[in-house]
Design a protein around this nucleic acid. Sequence first.
DNA 1: GCTTAACCTGGACGC
DNA 2: GCGTCCAGGTTAAGC
Length: 333
Amino acid sequence: MLPSHSDRNPIPSALSGFHRHELTGRPLNLSATLASGQNFRWRQDSERIWWGVIGDLAVGVWQEAGQPDSPLFWQTFPEPGRWEVIADYFRLEVDLEALYAAWSRAEPRIADALTAFRGLRLLRQPPVECFFAFQCAACNTVVKIERSVSQLAARYGEPLAVSRPPAVAANPGEERIFYTFPTLEALAQADERALRADLWGYRAPRVIALARHLLSLSPDWLASLRQASYAEAHAALTALHGVGAKLADCICLFALDKDEAVPVDTHIRQIALRLFLPDLAGKSLTPRVYSALADAYRARFGPYAGWAQQYLFFAELRRADAYRDPALSGAAD
DNA sequence: GCTTAACCTGGACGC
DNA sequence: GCGTCCAGGTTAAGC
């Protein structure tokens, strides 16, 4: 079960008990995927093992840094061996090489980002978690979003029983407690003052109101949008008070399998103005401009435009020095 | 249909 | 130490 030794990156001893999965033909750049701003709850420990929560499972994953074709080492807690959950979450069914070829033909200027972050994948996140995590994103910083979302889970989620809790870098030797993301029922009964104390600020009452509204529709309403078209899902989401076009696109792309969704935030806007639509520079981000920018990505990158924009987005983040991990790609090792 | 201000808050920055 | 600005947006009012 344990891997062979590697001189470049010693296999962490903490991987004892982990499984090994060969990513044959399905590259995965673990660090780029988990640090590219899709999800705010994954953390790396001192041995560079990534720890997160998928649904009701705590998950540990490790891969040799900058080697998207190297094996993935993984384990789930408290129920071990749930590979199907990990494969689904990281969307390993998607053939990246075919996408790279098509994107490069359509827009050669994406080549550097593809090379730097080869194996970056979009996640298939639980819809409720994605919906509320990105509620926190408005006028906020990534560090604060991560803190707010983690505190929300700790306050209103359920602790996960991990039989052999991993130590995490920030607190060596301390047992790490994992929490599920809160249910709609828990969020509907949340205390606004507590949320404000957790840095949710003016977003706090909106979170509670949205949870109550979603419950009134159906506990499974968000997940049911996976069966809808992109246009239908986007329209349904933006009809909710507090959900604009950008947030709707984040949920569509990161949780609802709408691969053509392009969340136009400040970074994606700047990239599009620089590469595709310089004539729109100086224009306010009205709904019409938002659509024009997103359509520009879709016109070039097709039905997986949302994946392509994630590469450009992450490259822009790194340029802006807004990333935390210096070893996200092979070039960085 | 576009522009603007308000909404929380902590960190970076200039003075 | 203090003031100002900014950060992965959304909404409503005013024009």
